[in-house]
Design a binder for these strands. Structure first.
Lengths: 189, 189
DNA sequence: ACCTGAACACCGTTCAAGT
DNA sequence: ACCTGAACACCGTTCAAGT
């Protein structure tokens, strides 16, 4: 019933392609996630991949989304933990995820970061920054600034102990903004 | 006298290779700076490039140095201009240079940034940060943080008017550091 | 619709040989 | 030393054909 003639109906899925791509990224690095490598891993001919994605760029876009989907966690939005702590947690998590996949940062930096999961991460940051007392537009700018810092520091292989330091400098610069404008507005949570 | 038998003596130079690579980068983008493209442009067989550089990575390293060598300017080290102004000038110059060469940022982000010109840029930043009142170790960390911001913002295609804003936040965070430790230490120059 | 085989137009790099 | 021609082991992508 569910069985169909082989070669006729779909034997794979977009997800299977992305899983293979992510596995290649983790095991062999970014320069080895190739259409042909993916095809071999899932057991089809190279050009059959084009049944699932229009081109390699689309596969890489999906891969970026896949990666960002893995960093989401409830504790990043838990209003009972101080906003600064939340941002640090998110930074640490994202860094760990990116370091586990060699070359992944460069994929993110080259991508448009406009998928659902990318927006989810941005939304998480926006909430934290609103809790820090930043206005809507300022929070949007600040969120982008934090993305720049997160991805840039991983790409430039910033040492683990230097990441929180730099992050605190950036956050200091952002909160200095609010304290001069709106003194004593919800500052820790 | 100076003439030598063709095919015997060196007809080109490392510089000629790098000039061709830079031209390809500016005209066609990063994915088109290929060994074969360079060879065609300078008029030799592809494998003859390996006479000048051990592999493609070495060519790209040289290319990065080439690019960084172009951003140097005396005004970045002029002690009569306020340190914050100097940092902004350097950021604007570097951004313009990188935007003129599509994909160049990703080359920098992937490189080790340990060549002479990369160190020169870092030294320029270190001087400005020392003038801001930061101690030696803090200035080193801060210099790296600024590199992260510069390259990250270009890679993530940060809008021109948002770059100085983010830069000021970062600089605010860095100077907040010194003002709490050493009140009223040379703050503008 | 999904798949295959074959081909096209590329890559970086190596090797043997010429001057 | 510097160069060429030919080759190797790859790429992404397209096309015609099969089910």
């Amino acid at each position: 019933m569910v069985e169909v003639r082989p070669g006729r109906r779909r034997t794979l899925s977009e997800q299977a392609i992305l899983d293979a791509a992510l596995a290649l990224l983790a095991e062999l690095g970014a320069d080895r996630v190739t259409i042909r490598g993916i095809a071999t891993r899932v057991g089809i001919a190279p050009n059959a991949v084009y049944t699932y994605f229009p081109d390699k760029a689309a596969v890489l876009d999906g891969l970026v989304e896949q990666l960002l989907g893995r960093v989401y966690d409830e504790r990043f939005t838990d209003p009972s933990v101080p906003w600064r702590h939340r941002v640090h947690d998110l930074a640490r998590e994202l860094r760990a995820e990116l370091l586990a996949h060699p070359g992944a940062v460069h994929l993110l930096l080259a991508s448009s970061l406009d998928g659902p999961n990318a927006r989810a991460v941005s939304a998480t940051l926006l909430t934290a920054l609103a809790d820090a007392g930043l206005g809507q537009e300022t929070a949007a700018r600040a969120s982008h600034l934090l993305n720049v810092y997160f991805l840039g520091s991983v790409a430039l292989e910033t040492a683990a102990d230097q990441v929180p330091w730099g992050l605190d400098r950036v956050l200091d610069g952002l909160t200095a903004q609010v304290s001069t404008k709106h003194p004593k507005r919800r500052s820790t949570r």
